[in-house]
C-alpha cells in the first residue's frame, strides 16, 4: 500500500480489535510491574490487615498510629520531610532561575543538569559519607569553622542528629527541585515580562503579580514531591546514623527484623501501608496541581 493512499475509515469492530492488539504491546511491561511491584505491595497490604495467624484484623493499623514509638517516628519523619521540602523548594527555585538566565547549552547548564540527576536520585549513601567528611568531628568544614571561632561540636551539633540529617537531605532536595521546576520556569514567556515592563511594572511587581501566581501550582506541586521524596528516603539515614534517629523507615526496618514482640512483623507492614498512603495522597495533590500548572503552557 502506498503511503499517500488514504486508508479507509475503520469500522467499529476493526478499531476495537486494533486497540486490543495495541494494548497487547504493553503486556510485558504491565505484567512485570504487576508481579514485581504489585506482588510486594499485595503482601504489605494483606500482612498489614491480618494477625500473625492470618486472621483479618485492623489492630496493626491502629497500633501503627497510636503506639508512642511509632507516633514519634511519624512526627520526626514529617518534620524532617516538611522542613527540607520547603528549604529545598525555595533554594532550588532560586538556583534553577539563576541557571536559566545563563547561556543555553553552556557547560554550566550541562554540569548543573547532569549533577542534579545524579545527586537528586542516587546521592543517598555518598552524600552521607561526604557530610561525615565535611561536618564530622574531624571534618574539613568543622575544623575550618573552629579556627574561625565557631566550635560546632561544643555548641551541641552532631552529624548523626536530626539537624545533621536535614542538612544532608537538603543537599539532594535542592537538585530535585531544580529538575522539577526548570520546565515551569522555561514556560514563563518573555512577552509577559515585556508587557508588564511596558505598563510600568518593576521587576518585583512582575514577579509578585504575574510570574509567581502563574508558577504557584508548579511550585506547590514540586514542594509536594520533595516532601514525598524525603518521607520515603531511607538510604541516607541508614548510612549516616545506623538507626539512632526514630524515623518511619527506621521503625519499619526495626519491626521487620526484631523478634521483640509477636506480631511486630505485621505492625511493620502496617507502617509500610501508612507510608504508601501518605505518599499516595501527596502524589495525588501533585498531579492535581500539575494539571493546573499546565494550563498556562497550553498553546
Amino acid at each position: 500500500m502506498s503511503l499517500l493512499e488514504t486508508p479507509a475509515a475503520p469500522t467499529e469492530t476493526v478499531r476495537a480489535a486494533g486497540s486490543w492488539r495495541a494494548a497487547l504491546g504493553l503486556a510485558p511491561f504491565v505484567a512485570y510491574l504487576l508481579v514485581f511491584l504489585g506482588g510486594p505491595l499485595y503482601f504489605v497490604v494483606s500482612g498489614a490487615l491480618s494477625d500473625p495467624d492470618g486472621r483479618p484484623t485492623l489492630d496493626n493499623l491502629v497500633a501503627s498510629v497510636t503506639q508512642p514509638q511509632y507516633r514519634a517516628a511519624f512526627a520526626s519523619s514529617i518534620v524532617l520531610s516538611a522542613g527540607t521540602a520547603v528549604i529545598g523548594a525555595v533554594a532550588g527555585a532560586f538556583l534553577a532561575q539563576a541557571v536559566l538566565t545563563s547561556r543555553p547549552h553552556s557547560p554550566l547548564r550541562r554540569i548543573v543538569s547532569t549533577a542534579s540527576g545524579v545527586l537528586a536520585y542516587f546521592g543517598g549513601v555518598p552524600l552521607a559519607f561526604a557530610f561525615i567528611a565535611a561536618l564530622g568531628q574531624t571534618g574539613l568544614a568543622t575544623r575550618f569553622l573552629r579556627t574561625a571561632g565557631l566550635d560546632l561540636y561544643a555548641s551541641g551539633f552532631r552529624i548523626d542528629s536530626l539537624t545533621g540529617l536535614a542538612l544532608t537531605y537538603v543537599y539532594f532536595q535542592i537538585p530535585l527541585m531544580v529538575i522539577l521546576i526548570t520546565p515551569a520556569l522555561e514556560g514563563l514567556l518573555p512577552q509577559w515580562r515585556e508587557a508588564a515592563e511596558n505598563l510600568g511594572a518593576s521587576a518585583w511587581t512582575y514577579w509578585r503579580r504575574i510570574a509567581l501566581p502563574v508558577l504557584a501550582p508548579a511550585l506547590g506541586g514540586a514542594t509536594l514531591v520533595l516532601f514525598g521524596n524525603a518521607f520515603a528516603a531511607y538510604a541516607t539515614a541508614l548510612a549516616l546514623t545506623s538507626g539512632s534517629i526514630p524515623l518511619l523507615p527506621t521503625a519499619i526496618a526495626a519491626a521487620l527484623s526484631g523478634n521483640v514482640l509477636a506480631g511486630a512483623q505485621n505492625v511493620g507492614l502496617a507502617l509500610g501501608l501508612d507510608m504508601v498512603l501518605v505518599i499516595a495522597v501527596v502524589m495525588v495533590g501533585y498531579v492535581v496541581l500539575q494539571r493546573r500548572a499546565s494550563r498556562w503552557q497550553a498553546r
Partner: peptide, 28 residues
Amino acid sequence: AAAVLLESATILPIVVPPVVMAAGIAFV
C-alpha cells in the same frame, strides 16, 4: 492514548518506596 497511563505507571515505584517494597519481599 496509553501515554498518560504509562506516565502514572512509572510514578508507582515512587509511591511505593524501597523500604516498603523490601517489607513486602521480606514477608514473602
